[in-house]
């Protein structure tokens, strides 16, 4: 069971959390202006990287907050968690000095 650092409550067992899909996929301010191709990409196209993946989690059985997380999909190590709305961290910087 992973230990996940909730930005509000600190490290908590994985079972308290729900996965929320890829992070930093912004909904257009005015969807009506988005063409079909871009809207389809927004709805369905998601990254599946080998390595660092930015994803959303919710501390569902805790404070209830959604937050973002950078996880290495190779080692399953969560490199960083941060509050929703905070800027996406620099991937290269996150991965240096990370031992799985």
């Amino acid at each position: 069971m992973l230990l996940i650092e909730c930005p509000y409550c600190g490290p908590r067992p994985e079972l308290e959390f729900r996965y929320g899909g890829e992070a930093h996929v912004a909904r257009a301010a005015d969807p009506a202006t988005v063409d079909d191709e871009h809207w389809t990409a927004f709805l369905f196209w998601r990254g599946n990287p080998k390595g660092l993946h930015f994803e959303r989690w919710r501390h569902a059985s805790g404070c209830g907050r959604f937050f973002n997380c950078a996880r290495d999909t190779v080692s399953d190590v969560i490199v960083k968690t941060y509050k929703a709305g905070e800027p996406k961290p620099d991937a290269a910087r996150l991965m240096t000095g990370t031992t799985p």
């Binding site: 409550c9 908590r12 079972l15 308290e16 059985s61 805790g62 209830g64």
Partner: peptide, 10 residues
């Protein structure tokens, strides 16, 4: 105090 799980219950 905190919300957490007790078994499968919140």
């Amino acid at each position: 105090t905190t919300r957490t799980l007790f078994g499968k219950a919140d």
